[in-house]
Amino acid sequence: MLLLALDTATPAVTVALHDGSRVLAESCQVDARRHGELLLPAVDRVLSEAGTKLDAVTGLVVGVGPGPYTGLRVGLVTAATFGAALDVPVHGLCSLDGLAYAAGLDEPFVVATDARRKEVYWARYADARTRLTEPAVDRPADLADQVAGVPAVGAGALLYDAVFTGVRREGPEHQSAAALAALAAEKLAAGEEFLPDRPLYLRRPDAQVPANYKVVTPQ
């Protein structure tokens, strides 16, 4: 097994190569505005660090979000195109699950990432491997009752620590494809299901229906 994992759902552009038992190489760059430029060079770097080529990969793992749309799509279209070109499967995972797995907690906790527009993407977990709720997008203030004092990880929890009062400052703050790959390897070994490689936007597109045609003749 040789899995190439990538995730661009958060400000982190992250890539990792996993052979089924361990991470062979990984890359993580945090730059919310350059997903498009950074991803392919990162893939190239990770493969060459591991001394292998893309055509040796037996499967793709991709974080399907939730995440801000433009960046999220970079990872998804890259994984889907690799999958098509190499004729290998593309396994989708909720991006929050990668952070949860990296947190390694065995008690209930929440994961929250920055959804911009003063909102967070978040979900509840029973432990590092078990998500209890569908990922959602909400204003932090609306979650205060539910998350106060609950252990929390992720940049969204750090950003709104007045609400996520149980935030764990030691992290993980950012998504790591290495965690995503390790989780995928476990799931594959256990024969578990993956998500389709389709984006979790959680918001409808912003599409202003233009107001009725504006009269140009002065009244």
Binding site: G36, L40, D55, T70, V74, V77, T78, T81, F82, A85
Partner: peptide, 19 residues
């Protein structure tokens, strides 16, 4: 359109790299 272009550019890069 920036976001629209980015989908095509990312796909083209992945396709060219894979091939």
């Amino acid at each position: 359109l920036a976001g629209a272009l980015l989908v095509g550019v990312s796909a083209a890069k992945a396709y060219a790299y894979a091939l």
